[in-house]
Design a binder for these strands. Structure first.
Length: 259
DNA sequence: ATGGCTGAGCTACTCAGA
């Protein structure tokens, strides 16, 4: 049994208590964080005492991603040779030997506003490079999990009122089509096996009492390659972490694997 | 009602988020 978690943490430094609670409750083998909002040097060392090691790709003040792994888990970093994906600190790519699994932790650019060509085109190009990696790994029959904050609504029911999102970089057809192109390489969005569209969200805005009104979005996803799909046992949305003191606006999500 | 929060950087606000 293997547990892999993902959490857009919206600053790692002020969320340590919540993370420690989550780790003690779930004991994941691997945790993917997005939006750590700090440099590698400023990444807090709460994890060594909990028997984890870290792979950090940070930058000052914004974006930034990191992976925590149980310390006994051997891994390699996978080289990424793609300009757009490397422009900001938004990915980690690792290979876990014991599982024979490549894991790509992603924090996709938001892309708003949609009429700001620079921001929106960057998101589209970013997702295009993600698609190229997906195609390469699936075509060469390498096991791949891409997980994290995709900033894309896959289904119209992944938000309460989709009409408000059709002209937004998260819900517009260009972004949703690009996401579909990634899936069409052969990846499965794990949530679709277990949950109906609209049944579950992964993000609630801090504004307008969105949490209290359950007015959320499902934009965090786990995409798995064909050969590995048979190991997937469950997906778990830890919604209670949105209701705690000083929460992230995203919740932790974890999958369990029969391997 | 394109933001009514929130965090970082930094010390007065802006940028970014989604």
């Amino acid at each position: 049994m293997t547990i892999i978690a993902s959490w857009n943490i919206n600053s790692i430094r002020i969320r340590i208590n919540l993370i420690e609670r989550f780790i003690k409750e779930v004991r994941p083998d691997v945790i993917l964080f997005q939006e750590i909002k700090c440099t590698n040097e400023d990444f807090p060392d709460f994890y060594t005492a909990l028997d984890y090691k870290a792979v950090i790709n940070g930058q000052k003040g914004k974006f930034g991603v990191a992976v925590l792994l149980r310390k006994e888990l051997d891994f390699n970093q996978v080289k990424v040779d793609r300009k757009i994906l490397l422009k900001e600190s938004r990915i980690n790519f690792i290979y876990i030997k014991k599982l024979d699994l490549n894991i790509l932790n992603v924090y996709t650019p938001n892309g708003n506003p949609i009429d700001n060509k620079e921001k929106f085109n960057f998101k589209m190009l970013w997702l295009s490079e993600l698609k190229e990696i997906s195609k390469n790994y699936v075509d060469n029959i390498k096991n791949l999990l891409i997980a994290g904050d995709f900033n894309v609504l896959e289904n119209e029911n992944d938000v309460k009122n989709f009409d408000n999102w059709e002209k937004d970089a998260l819900g517009c057809y260009q972004a949703r089509k690009k996401f579909r192109e990634i899936l069409s390489c052969g990846l499965t969005n794990i949530v679709r096996i277990f949950k109906k569209p609209g049944e579950i969200f992964s993000y609630w805005d801090y504004q307008r009492a969105c949490w209290e009104r359950n007015d959320g979005l499902l934009i965090d996803h786990f995409l798995i390659s064909p050969k590995f799909l048979k190991f997937v046992k469950s997906i778990n949305f830890e919604s209670k972490y949105r209701g705690m003191q000083k929460p992230s606006d995203h919740i932790p999500i974890w999958i369990s694997l029969n391997i």
